[in-house]
Structures are given as C-alpha cells and as structure tokens.
Computed example of a mutant assay.
Amino acid sequence: MLSYPFMQNAFVVGTLIAIVSGFIGVFVVARHMSFLAHTLSEIGFAGASFGLFMGWSPLIGMLIFTILASTTIGELGMQEKRSESLISAVSAVAIGLGIAFLALSQKNASAATSILFGSIFSISHANVVQVVVLALIVLVVGLLCYRPLRHFAFDYNTAIFSLKHVVLIEVLFLVLMAMTVAISSQVVGSLLIFILITLPASAAMRWGRTVWQMVGLSVLFGVVGVWAALVLSYWTNVPVSFYIAIIEAGIYFISLIKRDA
C-alpha cells in the first residue's frame, strides 16, 4: 500500500492535518466555538469554488474566504446576542456563492464532489507542500502563543481583563482556526471539516485532566482515525471521509460511555 506515491502523500497530509486539527480543536471546543467551525466549512465551500472560478488552487480561495469570515463573524458573534441568526444568514449566502462560482467556472460534478467530500488520494506534490507549510505555521504560532490561547479558551471571562492584548489573541485564534479549516478540507472536504476539529477534541476533553493531556489525546484520536480511514478506504474503495466520520464519532461515543460509567 505504501509503495504507491499517492498513498504516501495521503498519509503525510492526513497525519499533519490530524495533528493540527487535534491541537486547535481543543481550544475551539473549550471556547464553545464549534458552531463557527461548522459555519466556516460552508464558507470554505464558497472559497474553494471561487478559487476554481479564478483558476487558482481551491485551497487558496478557501484560505481567503475562511480567514476573512472567521475574523468578521467571530467578532460580530461575540458582540451581538443574535449571533445564531447572523451565522445562519452567512451560511446561506456562502452556500449560494459556492454553487454560483461552480456554475460560472463550468467545472464538472467531480470538482464539486472533491470540494465537498475531499480528495486526499488525488493530492499532488504541490498540494502536499502547501499543506506542510500551512500546518507548520499553525503549529508553530499555536505553540508560541500557547499560554495566552489556553487562558483565552478555557477562562475567557477573566482573560478579557487579565490579558493585555486580548483582542489580538482573539483575532489570532480565529485566523488559526480558519487556516485549520482550510487545510483540513484536503482530507474530509468542506462539508465534514468540523468532524476532525470538534470530535477528537470533544472526546479528549472527557479523558484528559490537563490541557496538554487533552491536546495529546485529541491529536492521538485524530491521527488514529485518519490512518485507519486511509487503510480501510484503500481496501474497500469507500471514501475516506466516511470512515473518518464513523471512527471519530465512535471514539466520541465511547468517551461518553466512559464518562457516564
């Protein structure tokens, strides 16, 4: 299996994305912003479609749309009580724009399927380089800003008073979240991005006692899920995203049983 270059690329990209999603996901879940991850998946669809329309890589379009949307929606959602209505409206517009850009770009159905559900087995060497660079940026920045991010995510009410640059930390967090959403789409597609970001982290937070334990478990659950999904997909010719969804959901349900036991 690993003798094929496309499988080698898939394992490299899948592992990196699982690590990044597991790391950032803990802060996303702790900050109760899973809803924004789901919304960004729909905005990412519009961004990827825009990238195809412009003749760019879908990843570039997704990065532009998700970063702009995360900072804008995140700030408005924090400040307004009607954040749910705001997010619903933005999601509706994003889906409409995605459909329009796909139609205007005159791409076939396979292009839309790749955006929505991922196409990890068709990732090129250039795509691998893009994902590696972006993943390293997210991890390095996240680790350098670990302490303020932890304070911001796990104790927001005191962070807004004790952190000197809380607005900057908030924007940084939203940008890192947007970048994670964009690169994660290479594995599970824009429709299922929130799976890798929220489910491993949610399960890990029921097992870990410290933040580092939560991060480690979240990364472990993500990597195990992606690796198992790649192997099963290779054997059965069923999409990787299906297996990732089933495996990560299974891990989460097991964590619920463990917590209630």
Rank of each mutant, 00 (worst) to 15 (best):
A103R: 10
I87E: 04
S110Q: 09
S124W: 06
S105L: 04
A109F: 08
V93W: 04
L86N: 00
I99S: 05
T113I: 10
K107I: 04
I115R: 09
A109D: 13
V93G: 04
A94N: 09
T113Q: 15
L97R: 05
S105G: 07
L116C: 13
A109R: 10
L116F: 12
I115N: 10
S119K: 12
A103D: 09
A94G: 07
I120S: 07
G96N: 04
L116W: 11
L104P: 00
N108C: 02
L86T: 04
S114L: 05
S91P: 00
V90D: 01
A109N: 11
G118N: 08
G96R: 10
V90Q: 04
I99T: 09
A109Q: 13
A89V: 13
F121W: 12
I95L: 12
F121R: 06
I99R: 00
L104E: 00
K107Q: 15
L97Y: 03
V90H: 03
T113H: 13
G98L: 02
I95W: 04
S91W: 11
A112G: 10
N108V: 00
S124N: 09
A109T: 13
V93R: 03
I95Y: 01
I115F: 05
A92N: 01
S119T: 07
N108P: 01
A89Y: 08
T113G: 11
A112V: 09
L86E: 02
F117Y: 14
L102Q: 02
A109M: 10
F101Y: 13
S122T: 14
T113C: 01
A89S: 10
A112C: 02
G96Q: 05
V90W: 02
L104Y: 09
A89M: 15
A111K: 00
T113P: 00
S122Y: 11
I120F: 07
A100D: 03
K107E: 12
A112N: 13
L97D: 01
G96C: 07
I115H: 08
G118F: 06
G98H: 06
S110F: 06
I120Q: 08
G96Y: 04
S119R: 11
F121Y: 14
A100P: 05
